[in-house]
Amino acid sequence: MAMHLPSGRSRGRRAPMADINVTPLVDVMLVLLIIFMVTAPLLTAGVPVNLPDSRAKPLDQEKQPTEISLDEQGRIFIAKEEMSFDTLSARLDAIAAAAQGSEPPQVYLRADRKLDYGQVMRVMGELNRAGLNRVALVTVGED
């Protein structure tokens, strides 16, 4: 029986290796998975931001949106008409009922930067309760 023993004559002639070594690929993927698992919770932590300034481009609109504004004193305006927080709920229900069967209208929410965050969230909660979920926060663009 003959055996093939490596000799000095066949150094330059090797058979091609047909196996793929996937161990380094698996190692890199596991390290990336661990990195993403560790950093993902850190991305949701509170970061100090100045919300009223934005570099976002304006939205293209086909229909006229509903504009809700909150001034520095916390007064609520719907399309330049002042109303109390108690009457806001009924007015938002009427807006949502007018759009029944079609897509809910886009709502632009403008709030003064000095206003308490809780007051803005109360208005957003009423919008959500009325079913007006297409809300865009209006900011001032940076030049």
Results as ranks from 00 to 15, higher is better:
115 L>W: 10
129 R>E: 13
92 L>V: 01
11 R>A: 08
101 G>Q: 07
93 D>V: 09
129 R>T: 15
125 G>L: 01
102 S>H: 12
59 L>Q: 15
26 V>M: 09
99 A>S: 13
105 P>D: 01
110 R>A: 07
52 P>F: 08
30 L>Q: 10
98 A>P: 01
31 V>S: 05
1 M>P: 02
74 G>H: 05
25 L>T: 09
98 A>E: 15
138 V>D: 04
61 Q>C: 05
81 E>T: 05
96 A>D: 00
83 M>W: 05
98 A>Y: 06
143 D>Y: 01
55 R>S: 11
130 A>D: 06
15 A>V: 13
132 L>G: 08
89 S>R: 13
124 M>F: 04
113 R>E: 09
54 S>V: 02
100 Q>Y: 00
104 P>E: 04
100 Q>H: 10
52 P>S: 06
62 E>T: 13
12 G>I: 04
48 P>L: 06
61 Q>W: 04
117 Y>V: 10
22 V>S: 04
65 P>K: 06
83 M>F: 05
69 S>N: 08
72 E>T: 11
140 V>S: 04
78 I>T: 01
60 D>Q: 11
14 R>L: 08
115 L>F: 08
107 V>T: 11
114 K>T: 14
106 Q>R: 07
13 R>Q: 12
61 Q>I: 14
20 I>F: 15
121 M>R: 12
114 K>S: 10
88 L>S: 03
121 M>K: 09
121 M>D: 15
49 V>T: 13
92 L>T: 07
50 N>F: 14
40 A>G: 09
136 A>Y: 12
103 E>H: 09
42 L>F: 11
6 P>H: 06
33 L>N: 06
73 Q>K: 12
77 F>Y: 14
37 M>N: 14
5 L>W: 05
107 V>H: 08
40 A>C: 03
117 Y>G: 05
20 I>A: 11
50 N>L: 10
112 D>L: 02
56 A>G: 09
115 L>E: 09
67 E>G: 00
129 R>A: 15
122 R>G: 00
56 A>E: 14
73 Q>F: 07
109 L>Q: 09
78 I>D: 00
47 V>H: 14
30 L>S: 12
12 G>A: 12
78 I>L: 03
95 I>T: 03
134 R>V: 06
135 V>D: 05
